[in-house]
Each structure stands twice: as C-alpha cells, then as structure tokens.
Lab assay of single mutants.
Amino acid sequence: GTEDLKEEAKKALKKGDKERAKRALKKAGLSEDQIKKFIKEVL
C-alpha cells in the first residue's frame, strides 16, 4: 500500500538512493511537488 511505499522511500533515502525513493513515491501516487517535499522532509 501507500504507507509501505513511503517506508520504502524513506529507507532508500537514508541509503542515499534518491532514484529508488522517487520510483516508490510515484507508485504511491504522489505528484512531483509532493515527492520533492517528501524528500526534503526526510533528508
């Protein structure tokens, strides 16, 4: 589900894998702006 994808994105970001995080967030249905915001909040 969406929460799982967001968790996956957080883990990817902590490993420095932004591309993987972006893919997971796109799958979760987030827009580009939401993805940028999510990444900023996590990092």
Score class of each variant (00 low, 15 high):
residue 32 E to Q: 07
residue 29 G to D: 02
residue 27 K to A: 13
residue 11 K to P: 00
residue 22 K to G: 05
residue 43 L to T: 06
residue 27 K to Q: 12
residue 1 G to A: 13
residue 1 G to R: 13
residue 6 K to L: 15
residue 16 G to K: 03
residue 9 A to S: 02
residue 3 E to D: 13
residue 6 K to F: 15
residue 15 K to R: 12
residue 21 A to Y: 01
residue 37 K to F: 06
residue 42 V to A: 11
residue 19 E to M: 07
residue 9 A to G: 02
residue 37 K to G: 13
residue 41 E to C: 10
residue 38 F to K: 03
residue 37 K to S: 14
residue 22 K to D: 06
residue 5 L to S: 04
residue 27 K to F: 05
residue 35 I to E: 02
residue 5 L to F: 10
residue 31 S to G: 05
residue 29 G to I: 00
residue 1 G to S: 14
residue 30 L to Y: 10
residue 24 A to S: 06
residue 40 K to F: 14
residue 20 R to A: 15
residue 30 L to A: 01
residue 23 R to Q: 14
residue 15 K to P: 01
residue 37 K to V: 10
residue 40 K to D: 15
residue 11 K to R: 13
residue 22 K to V: 15
residue 7 E to H: 08
residue 10 K to M: 11
residue 18 K to T: 15
residue 14 K to D: 06
residue 27 K to H: 06
residue 25 L to H: 00
residue 22 K to E: 14
residue 10 K to G: 03
residue 36 K to D: 15
residue 41 E to R: 08
residue 42 V to P: 01
residue 34 Q to C: 05
residue 34 Q to R: 03
residue 26 K to A: 12
residue 2 T to E: 12
residue 33 D to I: 08
residue 30 L to P: 00
residue 4 D to N: 10
residue 26 K to E: 14
residue 4 D to T: 11
residue 32 E to V: 09
residue 30 L to E: 01
residue 37 K to T: 09
residue 33 D to Q: 09
residue 27 K to Y: 04
residue 4 D to Q: 13
residue 41 E to T: 09
residue 38 F to R: 03
residue 9 A to E: 00
residue 35 I to H: 01
residue 13 L to T: 02
residue 23 R to E: 15
residue 29 G to Y: 01
residue 10 K to S: 06
residue 25 L to K: 00
residue 37 K to N: 15
residue 12 A to P: 01
residue 2 T to Q: 11
residue 15 K to W: 07
residue 15 K to E: 15
residue 41 E to L: 09
residue 20 R to K: 11
residue 26 K to T: 11
residue 2 T to K: 10
residue 39 I to A: 02
residue 2 T to R: 10
residue 24 A to E: 07
residue 35 I to M: 06
residue 21 A to L: 05
residue 40 K to T: 13
residue 32 E to D: 13
residue 18 K to P: 13
residue 9 A to H: 01
residue 24 A to H: 08
residue 36 K to F: 07
residue 10 K to P: 00
residue 37 K to C: 09
residue 21 A to E: 00
residue 29 G to H: 02
residue 4 D to H: 12
residue 27 K to P: 00
residue 27 K to C: 06
residue 23 R to Y: 04
residue 12 A to V: 02
residue 24 A to W: 08
residue 17 D to W: 07
residue 34 Q to V: 04
residue 41 E to F: 06
residue 14 K to G: 09
residue 34 Q to D: 14
residue 35 I to C: 04
residue 15 K to L: 14
